[in-house]
């Protein structure tokens, strides 16, 4: 009884600790500017005025921060392009690599896997300069591709690692049954293996997307104009304009976290299945 109660209390504390900052940002984004200075927890007179700045693309608003806010939709599209490409690259390269590691016994497969994992432990800052020079020499600066490639570099090892473990829980007999039922090796992969492993694929796909969405360092380094700047980099511009009202920044913050939040909620069942679960015949 007490065990159970303390467990609930602990869970509740964790929920408050994790969500309170976000909840407060969301609350502030609906406040008129003066309420923030009064240190309110909840908007007395809720307004969506803070958001209107962001969707006023053609607008003439001369408010402080309006120039940045106006670029938000474009930056969100940039982030979407980059995130989706990173997700697709992770799923195609990651699933093929993980399938090979999980199913084909070849010399040095453990070594390869450890190498992938080891590459994760190199801090981004350490390879920042070489990466920049590389991108410059290929003429990729200020393109989506430069950000996509760098994000894929960082997310792929994790994807392969998780998928390999997940793929190994798929009984080998399942593919064998598909072969006997008339599938070619590729047919068995497409018709049986991939549908069965959907939760794992969705989970790593969403992880890759969210990781890319939230990445800041390399995106800042490689992009200069709104042609390629993702939303995280754009949002940091607020920090340089001292006069931007906090309520407007909060609204921007909400816009940035909205999509990852929605994705996680939509797919939470599949994500949990994919990370913690296994496939059973």
């Amino acid at each position: 009884m007490w065990r159970r109660a303390s467990l609930y209390i602990y869970a509740l504390a964790a929920v408050i600790y994790l969500t309170l900052p976000f909840a407060w940002v969301a609350a502030v984004s609906f406040m008129p500017e003066r309420e923030v200075t009064q240190q309110r927890w909840w908007p007395e007179e809720p307004t969506i005025g803070n958001y209107s700045l962001y969707f006023d693309v053609e607008g003439q608003s001369a408010d402080v921060g309006a120039a940045i806010a106006r670029q938000f939709p474009r930056a969100i599209i940039n982030s979407l392009i980059i995130g989706s490409a990173v997700m697709l690259l992770n799923l195609t390269c990651g699933s093929l690599a993980a399938y090979a590691l999980a199913r084909l016994p070849f010399r040095g497969n453990l070594l390869l896997l450890l190498f992938y994992l080891g590459s994760r432990s190199v801090p981004g800052v350490a390879i920042m300069i070489p990466m920049y020079l590389l991108m410059r020499s290929y003429g990729l600066l200020d393109t989506h591709l430069s950000v996509i490639l760098s994000h894929t570099t960082f997310t792929l090892p994790f994807t392969i690692w998780i998928l390999k473990g997940y793929f190994q829980t798929v009984p080998l007999d399942l593919e064998r049954a598909a072969r006997v039922d008339g599938c070619t090796p590729l047919g068995a992969l497409v018709r049986v293996f991939l549908p069965v492993t959907t939760p794992g694929l969705v989970a790593v796909g969403i992880f890759a997307f969210i990781a890319s969405w939230g990445e800041f360092l390399f995106a800042l380094l490689f992009t200069t104009t709104i042609a390629s700047r993702p939303v995280t980099v754009l949002a940091s511009d607020f920090a340089q304009e001292l006069q931007v009202p906090f309520t407007v920044i909060a609204a921007g913050g909400v816009l940035v976290i909205l999509l990852p939040l929605v994705l996680s909620f939509l797919f939470q069942r599949l994500i949990i299945q994919g990370i913690g679960g296994s496939v059973t015949g």
Binding site: P171, D173, A177, R179, V180, T184, T198, G281
Partner: peptide, 20 residues
Amino acid sequence: VPPERRDIAMVFQTYALYPH
């Protein structure tokens, strides 16, 4: 000849039903 082109059927110890 690969299994898909042999005229066979097989039942596995784990049944190997397609869960999806």
